[in-house]
Amino acid sequence: MGEVIRLRDITRVFDTGQVQVHAVRGVSLDVTEGGCMAIMGASGSGKSTLMNILGLLDRPTSGSYHLVGEDTSRLNRNRLAEIRNKTIGFVFQNFNLLARTSALENVELPLLYRGVPSRARRRMAVDALERVGLGDRVHHAPSQLSGGQQQRVAIARALVASPSVILADEPTGNLDSRTSVEIMNFFRELVDSGLTMVLVTHEPDIALWADRVVEMKDGLVVSDRLQAPLRVAMDQEKEST
């Protein structure tokens, strides 16, 4: 199996003027293709900072980060934007959908920045929405969708670009427990079909769906273990709220 992420001695220091905050103090991790890795930790453990570095939204102070074999430490902002566009699919806690914009157009966004022509863009976006079970909600605006449906639109947006890895930052943080289970089940299906996923969460319940759990504390990895992932059988599929 190919290597997707290779972190070596990553540190990240925030200079606030008077104090230097060491958010990440030296993390080395390897993520291979397929499977779901959960990064856990309390707030202030450095997991969000690590997530930003993984998502190429932030640069490490020191250490090296290879994403799908490419060393990202010396790339400029434009090249980083290109790699984000092609390699990474983001799923956020607060969905981050464009308001007053249809599900379809929201899903089309990453393709737009890749320069996909409009007809192909539309077809790919519809496919992605069908994949998350929202084929009948293509023209709905986010305000007309439930929280779970909004997160599905966001997942479709992450999937549409066929990224090498999906980074999900507290994807169930704004959802009720029932919908959380549905979303996590859906992620699990995607991972089982070959997707690579990194999940950041502070809820142990959510981490149960992962194959591997990395726990962070004070900017360091304190445990890294494999587990048999949870799969919840749902009798009544398709959420209703």
Partner: peptide, 16 residues
Amino acid sequence: TREIGLRMALGAKPSA
């Protein structure tokens, strides 16, 4: 601001 951040995360270059 959030929209701009999102667009950048999804691959919009600063120039775009």
